[in-house]
Write a protein that binds this DNA or RNA. Structure first.
Lengths: 193, 193
DNA sequence: CCGCTCGTGTCACTGAGTGTCAAGATGTCA
DNA sequence: TGACATCTTGACACTCAGTGACACGAGCGG
């Protein structure tokens, strides 16, 4: 029950935050405002999120874990480019599924420098995770071999480019097709083993 | 004279900031402290820098312009991988030259989440710059072709990986050799035109 | 000498983020 | 059911980042 309540308040805060931020812009919304809208105090907000940026970025937090899980689930015989494309494809598909909500969040992030910065930092953690998974998968030493980190970086780079185009076209372009085109460019470097 | 004085105060602030931040850690230093050490008021600090992060990141601001300039100066016949490696090599060489100061700054950035986030955001601007230059160089349309953005991203990715290794080894590893190895990995994707 | 501009310091203010404590809700066990 | 322990929350006070307003003094042209 305690956990359920926590989840409930957390959702309430996220909901209020996304609503207000998308409506009025990042800087024009105070944390007091978000907390009051969600029916809690400012102090409680900070018991759930570390900062205003965190509410938004946390909303996408699962993406990293999802990608790593998908990569780990892929057959070891599969070429790295194919496995990585599937891994990156998971969060992209999630976005495409909830295109109404996800598009607004992505546009908010890409348009707000403070959010973009935090988002990139989060991605750096995903990259390290993917690199570790990739190194294990290929039996490489991540401390001496540059390939895992570079490969993971390239995949997330493609991910970023797709998000950027998707957001810039207001969801008009097809994410799946963009992913295909992006990986067609980077695959030659991913599969040279 | 006015510009010289501005530069003088700016240098004083940068000096004081880097000194204090490296010594006590990012969060343990207040802006009041930095300003007082430099002999000015807190208000004046904000007339030179937008935030505490900015003092550090601004210190590396020229890197972006340097890279783009180097890329623009390279012969158009040169393969993209070679041209990009030279472009990225410029700031790396600058780091290696001032290894005492540069190493401390890089380690501070990579170790401090708030700084790392701002640094990545800055890099995103560099990437867009490089992509634009690359698109012009190759006669591609940056709005329809994914290659320029992905190629620039891969190059900066390599740049990042090198900085990470260089910082992690306390400057023991040779940046030039690391760049060579990183570009050996990504070159197959850069040169498939 | 007068007025102009520009850079700076002082002051006051909003908002982010944190520590502390008391009170209430909840969960457990007898 | 009742007593006790735990956890969550709100209220308050505080530090510090960042901004706006204004007044002061230095340098400069008339």
């Amino acid at each position: 029950m305690a956990m359920r309540k926590r989840q409930l308040v957390s959702n309430e805060l996220t909901e209020a935050a996304l609503q207000l931020l998308a409506l009025k812009g990042f800087d024009a919304v105070t944390i007091d405002e978000i907390a009051t809208t969600a029916g809690v105090s400012k102090r409680t907000f900070f018991r759930y999120f570390a900062s205003k940026e965190d509410v938004v970025v946390q909303f996408l937090a699962d993406m990293g874990a999802d990608m790593r899980a998908e990569l780990a689930a892929r057959s070891a015989e599969e070429r790295p480019s194919a496995a990585l494309q599937c891994a990156v494809g998971v969060p992209i598909a999630t976005c495409a599924d909830h295109s109404d909500r996800a598009l607004r969040v992505v546009q908010l992030i890409l348009r707000t420098p403070a959010l973009h910065a935090r988002f990139l930092e989060r991605q750096a953690q995903w990259r390290d995770d993917l690199a570790a998974e990739l190194a294990q998968r290929l039996g490489l030493d991540p401390d001496s071999d540059l390939y895992p980190r570079l490969a993971a970086g390239m995949a997330l780079n493609a991910f970023d480019a797709v998000l950027h185009r998707w957001s810039g076209s207001d969801g008009a372009e097809d994410p799946a097709e963009l992913i295909d085109r992006a990986f067609a460019v980077i695959a030659p470097a991913l599969d040279t083993v």
